[in-house]
Design a protein around this nucleic acid. Structure first.
Length: 478
RNA sequence: GGUCUCGUAGUAUAACGGUUAGUACAUCGGGUUUUCAUCCCGACAACGCGGGUUCGACUCCCGCCGAGAUCACCA
């Protein structure tokens, strides 16, 4: 059975640069009816951030990436917080000591620093094993435990990077257990993956260079090697470096608040650095699960492009409306309406949504774009003055056009889109104006917004009374 | 600096050694009786460089250049 894991450390929010290392393990596990484990790597007490675990859980849930073992859901291989697994690490560490493959290192850190400087000065690579203390004490709390490395070469296969090899010069005496008793990542993840039965270790490429040391550890511990999958970095928009918080990488939560749909987020991220070889762009989660494959993961970094995310989000917004219906999209819009919409009915809001959903890139666009449906816009004659068609007209002409329009619209009995369009067409005939001239005027008078849906639809939703009142208000303001 | 990885348009990518190097986003132009958007049509735009191997190389090999990762009691 395929078992994958996502193992974040609770040091803050999850940003888009690292969610992908949750998405791919999820897809692989689901595709093979395996298991996905969530493990919290909280061995660095100094960097621990209160509430970060909840943020991780929340983000995964929102994206629809459920896990089979881990916090909240439990499982047979817990605890799933590394801070609660102390004994397990210490047991494995003692095995290593018994085999003569680990030693307590009493060397003070300033001494280690000197060794390092010494190497830098002589331009030789710093390898701690060259400075291994000859006299090592019994391992006890307060003394770090180091691996005793054997300088040898390793070969391995990376599912993304291909066949790899490394010489003995990268093998070193890495720290296994810190002096505070907590294990390092290097040791803890190996023990945990083995104990939890993880078959595929998927993580960022930054771990590629330490892989030989992990291989040495598997060997010394008599543990089978899991399959190794290195995920290339997602690059920041304006640099060639990995996208990180300091490049302004937003948290997933922030995108959620902007009205990015989880479907779009998942779709975009999954396809950043992976494709199935076809020209398909939009994938549902189920399609991703069905089509995902490790061997089609790109082996170079992929630049993050928010514009494309937004495009994809627009595609998803339209697809939910068109395929699941207005109510389905409406259900997603809670919290994205302007505050003035609060007093309006759900039915009305669905009507508004129905005529402007195809303009949305993110749901939060609703706040600005729909405001004039809920409260009368402030009359701002600059809109008329700056309009290239209307600026040519005199005030008297504008007033007269508005009056004619009002009279015509007032005579409509059944206020619906078809009749409104008919009336609008008649008005063109009667006034001899071009659509651009007359319709721009009416549109602006009704919305005072830079853009809006088709005139007849806008007025239909607004209702006869409000539409006429707004036209009247503008006519008398001129 | 040592070790390792990567290199197709601005971006994401496709192309069993043989294609006018395909697609999408972005950009620009056009169409759908106003605007914005959707939708449709069109345009611009790429194999890092140099050697090989081959009848033929984006594809295989070598060198160079460029970019990145890593060398923590962080993960």
């Amino acid at each position: 059975m395929i078992v994958t894991r996502f193992a974040p450390s609770p040091t803050g929010y999850i940003h888009i640069g690292n969610v992908r290392s949750a998405i791919y393990p999820y897809l692989l596990a689901r595709q093979n009816h395996g298991k996905m484990i969530l493990r919290i790597e909280d061995t660095d007490r100094a960097r621990y951030v209160e509430g970060a675990t909840e943020l991780v859980e929340d983000t995964l849930e929102w994206l629809g990436l459920n896990w089979d073992e881990g916090p909240i859901v439990g499982g047979d291989h817990g605890p799933y917080f590394q801070s609660e697994r102390q004994e397990i690490y210490h047991d494995w560490a003692r095995k290593l000591i018994a085999k003569g493959r680990a030693y307590a290192d009493p060397t003070p850190s300033d001494q280690i620093e000197k060794y390092r400087e010494q190497c830098n000065a002589s331009k030789t690579p710093f390898l701690y094993r060259n400075f291994r203390p000859t006299d090592t004490p019994e391992w006890q709390p307060g003394i770090p435990l180091r691996f005793k490395a054997e300088p040898k070469s390793y070969e391995w296969h990376d599912e993304v990077m291909g066949d790899m090899h490394a010489g003995p010069e990268v093998l070193d005496d890495i720290i296994l257990i810190k002096k505070d008793g907590y294990p390092t990542y290097n040791f803890a993840h190996i023990v945990d993956d083995a104990e939890m039965g993880v078959t595929h270790v998927m993580r960022g490429v930054e771990y590629l260079s330490s892989t030989p040391n992990y291989l040495a550890l598997y060997e010394a511990l008599d543990l089978p090697r899991p399959k190794l999958v290195s995920l290339p970095h997602i690059l920041a928009p304006n640099s060639n470096k990995k996208l990180g918080k300091r490049d302004g990488a937003k948290s997933v939560t922030e995108y959620r608040q902007d009205g990015i749909l989880p479907e779009a987020m998942l779709n975009y991220l999954a396809c950043l650095g992976w494709n199935d070889g076809t020209e398909q762009e939009i994938y549902t989660k189920e399609e991703l699960i069905a089509k995902f494959s490790l061997d089609r993961i790109q082996n170079s970094g992929a630049r993050y492009d928010e514009t494309k995310l937004l495009w994809m989000n627009g595609q998803w917004i339209r697809s939910i409306f068109d395929e699941q219906g207005p109510e389905a999209l409406y259900a997603r819009t809670e919290g994205f309406w302007p505050s003035v919409a609060k007093t309006h009915s759900e039915e009305y809001k669905i009507k508004v949504l129905s005529i402007l959903y195809d303009r949305l890139r993110a749901l939060a666009d609703l706040r600005e774009m729909s405001a004039y449906f809920f409260s009368d816009p402030e009359i701002n004659l600059d809109f008329l003055i700056n309009n290239k068609f209307i600026k040519k007209m005199s005030e008297a002409e504008i007033e007269s056009l508005l009056k004619t329009t009002i009279a015509k619209l007032a005579s409509i009995d059944a206020w619906d889109a078809d009749n409104l369009q008919q009336a609008l067409n008649d008005l063109l005939q009667e006034t001899g104006k071009k659509p651009a001239e007359l319709f721009s005027l009416i549109r602006i008078a009704i919305s005072f917004a830079p853009f809006s849906p088709a005139l007849n639809l806008t007025m239909e939703v607004l209702g006869k009374e409000i539409a006429l009142a707004r036209l009247n208000a503008v006519a008398s303001a001129i």
